[in-house]
Structure formats: structure tokens, C-alpha cells
Design a protein around this nucleic acid. Structure first.
Lengths: 240, 240
DNA sequence: TCGAATTTGTGCGTATGTATC
DNA sequence: GGATACATACGCACAAATTCG
């Protein structure tokens, strides 16, 4: 009996939610009901429910009750061939703004340039239908693209073509991309632009395009973790 | 003054942490100090500190104090060839326990069997050195493996070999795997077993192995998003 | 080695404000 | 308007761990 009471109550409720006994949208017993049911004070019942709130399983509605959260089925976003922009399959518009900038330290490191070097920074918002899905930023070293036809990523004949295609047009062959996937709580600005609830979790996909060993573009794609999952298929025996 | 007291105290402490005024490893004022400093009851001070714990910014050490957490650089975990167990590169032991079970609805759907069908469920904890890194569960339909040499995934000559190899030994050729990556707040049990702060964010990698169109294994891998990122490389022009 | 003080984690009972039904 | 529910807040209490003289 070392496990604290409020955690054991939380365990019990969580179990009932996961078994479907408490269905999404359904009301969890009120805290007076819980305190009677488990013979504890109402404060302990509150603590137990709070654990589930922090796990994102339930949400409280003042005056009404505590409800099992409906989990909108996460939309499966298929991973696109390397170098595509964006790296996941979407059917929608994009908004982009580009500007010259200087590379912050972490970006400079990814691009293999000195911190403060000139870069072209482009901010994207990708839509699927009318819905904003992916927030992104890409950085390209201006030492590479200045005064070429693809200096501005979203202008000219190669606009929206993705870095592999664009770089190819100026004689730079992207041979490899590296991607890392991570996740973290959303920043306030991301919550606002992607229309997310507070304290949402986002998936962050970082991609760097390399020509040989030289990085020629790096980008960061941010999307809601609750609403999306990234999917990929592998054929067994394929050359990787 | 609409923002509750405990959140405003949390804001203040968070700000001091982010400004470096309270450095990593340093002790946050105790709750009696906080309650005097802000003229609130000790319970309110406790609630304020709990918010920061849930954000992973501080951790409590009973009898000692509450300390600003040191944030280790996220470790990059390389994606392994499809079908490996686990799907990321680790250098460490594993603990596994297998048991017969019946398939819950979402698992049944992934395995293409009826809900409640007999499955072999195996729970894993993968270590890197001494540190627990990945929590995993795999499910295999017993209709496929019952009474074969690989019925128990972690026993026999093919123990720890991963599903592709194990299935091959009983004449089942895995031709394809599908993977989806998502993220969410950690469940309390996951936080405990992976030694994470409460309400940490975890990355969830779901993998299903298919022989033709028939699913033969599905698994879920859970790891801390703060401490790890998944990395992959793509050669341009490769056949996918 | 011992004991006193401090600190966290947990738990109880009560109270107030406000939203919902 | 009244009953109910959540969110917040106050004050107290005790166990267990730690710290320090």
C-alpha cells in the first residue's frame, strides 16, 4: 500500500477509460461521488482527477462536470520522398514569406556556416483544405544562392518545387537528406497560428539537405501531435 | 487579477528560471519560504511548484528541496532497418515479459483480427547502458504462432531477433512494415518507469509488420521526447 | 552516533467564486 | 432561483527523507 491514494484512484479511472467503460465524451464521476466511492476526502479526489487532466485524458468544464476527452482521430500524414516541400503529403495552399537574415547559432551549426552568416529565411504555413496544418521555417545559405534564380524560394520558375529541385537548377546536386523527429510543448505563437488548445504538444521534424557533405538547406516543420501522425512504409530488402 | 495566484507564482518562478536567475541544479525556495514571500498559504505554494514540475522545469527531492532540472542535450537515436527490435539503435540490455492476452479493439484492428482474439503480448523495457530508454509493447496473433518455436518472443533460439527474423523461421515472410510517429503527454506509469517528470512528452512509434497484406506483428515504442530525437537519413534517388 | 530542524509528499476539512443545468 | 460542479484558496497534520550540528 505504498502507492498514494490519489494515484491509485487515478489508475482506476484511467483503466476504466482505456477499457472503454468510460467512453469519450462521457462524464467522469464528480468529485463528491468519487470521494464517497473511494472513502476519501474531496481534495484527494481532485488530485486524482488532476493527474488525468495532465495526461490529457479528461477535461474539466466548470459548472458542468469532468469529461473524457474526445480524441479526434489523428490524421495520418504520409512521408514524402526526400527533399519535398513540405515533407508530408498535403492537399492545400501555402503561404510563405522570405527575408534575408543572419543565422542564429543552432541554425548556423546545421548549415555548417559561421553564426551570423547571411541566410535566406522563409516562413511557411501549409494548409490542407482550409485548415492550417504545418508551420515551417527554412534556411538557406546566401553564399550559395545569392543572385541566382532560386535565391527567393517562393518566386521564379522553381517556386514551391522543394530544395532538391531548386538546387539542381543552379547546378547543386542534393545527394542526401537527414531528418530528425522530436516533440515538445507548443510555443504560444505556434498554438495561435495553428489554432491549437493551450498546452498542446507539437511534433517537430527537422530536415537538412546535403550536397555531398555540404549542407545546402535546413528546415523545421511543426505540426500538432494530437491531430496528426507521420507515417512511412518500408519494403523489406530495400536498399537503404 | 483574473489569473489565479498559484499560476502567477509559477509564472514568476518560470521567468526567473528562464532568465538564468535560478540556474540548473539550484534550489528553488522552499514552500514555507514561498508562502511567506508571496503571502499565501503553503498549499498554494505547493500548487505553484507543481505546475513547474509538470512542465519538467523543476524536480522535488523529498527531505532536501526542489531543484531546477538540468536539461541534457537530446540524444539522437538512429533509425534501424525495418523490423529490428527495437527500431532505434541502443547499446544495452532489455527486460521482457510475455503473456497470452486478448486483443483490445485498437490492437485487433491493427492486426486484422477480431477484437478479443488470442494474442501474445510482450512488454519490454530497453536500456542504453544502465538507463531505461524505451518502453514497448508488442502483440502477435496466436493464430499464427501458437505451438511454434517462436510463440514466446523472448525465448528459444530466435529470442531478441526481431519479428522479421523470427517470423521467417516459421516460414512467414515479412515483406513490408508501416511505421507511424506521434507524440503525446506521458502517462503516469510511463513517467515512473522511464524516470521522467510528470507530464513529460513522449514520442510514440507504432510499427506493424506485414506478410503481404496480412499483419503478423504490431508494436508500440515509447520514449522521452525531451531526451531523444529520432534520426533517419535518405539517399536521393534511392528506390522507395 | 544521535537528535533536532527542515523539506517534500501526501492527506483532511472547509470555504468562496463562478459556471452550468 | 436553486442545486450541482469545478477551480481556487486557506490552514492544518503527519510520515519519510535529508541535512547539519
Amino acid at each position: 500500500m505504498s502507492r498514494p491514494t490519489y494515484l491509485r484512484i487515478a489508475d482506476d479511472l484511467r483503466h476504466r477509460i482505456q477499457e472503454g467503460e468510460l467512453a469519450p465524451g462521457e462524464r467522469v464521476p464528480s468529485r463528491t461521488q468519487l470521494s464517497r466511492r473511494y472513502t476519501v476526502s474531496d481534495r484527494v479526489a481532485v488530485e486524482a482527477v488532476k493527474v488525468l487532466m495532465n495526461e490529457g485524458l479528461v477535461e474539466g468544464r466548470p459548472g458542468s462536470g469532468t469529461y473524457v476527452r474526445r480524441r479526434p482521430e489523428a490524421r495520418r500524414l504520409h512521408h514524402e520522398p526526400p527533399g519535398a516541400s513540405p515533407p508530408v503529403a498535403l492537399n492545400g495552399a501555402r503561404r510563405a514569406t522570405s527575408a534575408e537574415a543572419t543565422a542564429p547559432a543552432p541554425i548556423a551549426e546545421r548549415l555548417g556556416v559561421d553564426a551570423g552568416a547571411d541566410v535566406m529565411r522563409t516562413d511557411y504555413l501549409f494548409f490542407d483544405d482550409e485548415e492550417p496544418i504545418v508551420l515551417a521555417t527554412s534556411w538557406e545559405p546566401l553564399a550559395l544562392t545569392r543572385d541566382t534564380a532560386v535565391m527567393w524560394p517562393e518566386q521564379g520558375p522553381f517556386a514551391s518545387q522543394g530544395p532538391v529541385c531548386r538546387m539542381a537548377s543552379i547546378g547543386v546536386t542534393v545527394t542526401r537528406t537527414t531528418e530528425t523527429v522530436s516533440a515538445r510543448p507548443a510555443l504560444e505563437e505556434e498554438s495561435r497560428r495553428l489554432d491549437l488548445p493551450r498546452s498542446a504538444v507539437v511534433i517537430v521534424l527537422r530536415r537538412t539537405c546535403l550536397a555531398g557533405e555540404r549542407p545546402v538547406e535546413t528546415a523545421e516543420f511543426v505540426l500538432s501531435a494530437e491531430r496528426h501522425e507521420l507515417s512511412q512504409e518500408f519494403e523489406i530488402g530495400e536498399t537503404r
